[in-house]
Amino acid sequence: MLCAGEWVTITDTKGHRKSIKLVAGKVHHTTKGGLAHDDIIGQPEGIVVTTVGGLQFLVFRPLLNEYMVTMPRQAAVIYPKDAAQIIMRADIFPGARVLEAGVGSGALSLAMLRTIGPSGLLHSVERRAEFAEVARRNVEQFCGGTHPGWELSIGDLAEITLEDQYDRAVLDMLAPWDCLEKVSQALVAGGLLCCYVATTTQMGRVMDSMRAMGCFTEPMALEVSVRDWHAEGLAIRPGHATSAHTGFLVITRRMAPGVDAPMRKRRPAPGAYGPDYTGPVPRNVAAEHMEANRRRAREMG
């Protein structure tokens, strides 16, 4: 039964959702009259309640994917479609020790906390205290209190001291390449690193930085698109709520200590590391450039 103090999601006949906290005697006001919380408290999930103006609402406990996109926020959230891929591609498992940098409003934190369970550890690092506070409230609201496996630190990942070794690391920050050295030291051998970046420029630079370090495997990059569909009688078409680009995921694995990943045999595209390129140069590309410079020097006499 639904109890006072719980959060529920109410959905109208047009599909508009709203999360409310049940309080005895309180009324939720809509454009078509009030909805009494007492009509919900003590009832099972899946009921239909009606405002005094005749507007009907479905009532359920909130699903995680619904809560992630409707919860209060100060920073942009990682949407469920990307969070689901991060959980799978980074192979986050129950009991895992995970390092997260860039908490935002706590959406991905919630997804990972549900996955690792009470026996795991999620160490989240956020530079801005106001973002961290919003994330803390969102997590505690959905979990009904503090999560036993969550540690939230305020500060810069590049500057804080990491006491633990981690199975997985997820970076959602502007310049993840600045923290790759620190993350490589904190990850166990075979551990996975996932970077979430917004632009192709960021994606390219973080991938080249991983290649240049040598202690990571060849990185893989992807983006996720989800397409809703509308089906009613003969009217079958893509939905209006299709979610296309939100960000890129870059995923790699940590090599064993002292072991460098084999250099790629595939040659980069012509001009990929031309005179205008200012980022890190992968080891095999650097060797090719040195050999090309030697050839030009010999030709010039």
Rank of each mutant, 00 (worst) to 15 (best):
H123C: 05
L64D: 07
R211N: 11
V281P: 08
T201H: 14
V206M: 09
M300Y: 07
C3D: 11
L249F: 04
E66Y: 03
K26G: 11
A84P: 02
Y277M: 11
G155T: 06
C215Q: 06
E45I: 03
E100V: 07
S209N: 04
Y79N: 08
V49K: 01
N138S: 08
A96V: 05
G145V: 01
E181H: 00
G258I: 11
H289E: 15
A169F: 05
R266T: 14
K26Y: 13
K21S: 02
G5V: 08
P176E: 10
G155F: 05
G54Y: 06
R61C: 05
G271D: 11
H289P: 01
A84S: 11
R296S: 10
M255R: 11
C215E: 06
L249E: 04
H123F: 00
S109P: 00
I154F: 11
P270K: 12
Q56N: 15
A175M: 09
A235V: 15
C3E: 15
L180Q: 03
G155A: 08
P62Y: 03
R17S: 14
M300H: 12
R73D: 05
T199A: 05
R211F: 11
A83N: 06
R296D: 10
V224P: 08
M173C: 03
V103R: 02
A256L: 13
E288T: 09
E130K: 13
V259E: 15
P262F: 12
E181I: 00
I251P: 07
A24S: 14
V125T: 04
T242A: 12
R168D: 05
K265F: 14
H28S: 09
V197W: 09
Q165T: 07
G95S: 04
H230A: 09
L180D: 05
A221P: 14
Y79V: 07
A101M: 03
A107E: 08
E218S: 08
E66A: 08
L22A: 03
A101V: 06
K18N: 14
K14H: 14
V250D: 08
A261M: 12
G42N: 08
K32F: 10
V226S: 14
Q141C: 09
Q202S: 14
A256S: 14
K32H: 09
Y273H: 09
K32T: 00
W177T: 02
S243G: 04
A90H: 00
D39Q: 14
G54E: 07
A83H: 04
T13N: 15
V250G: 09
F93D: 05
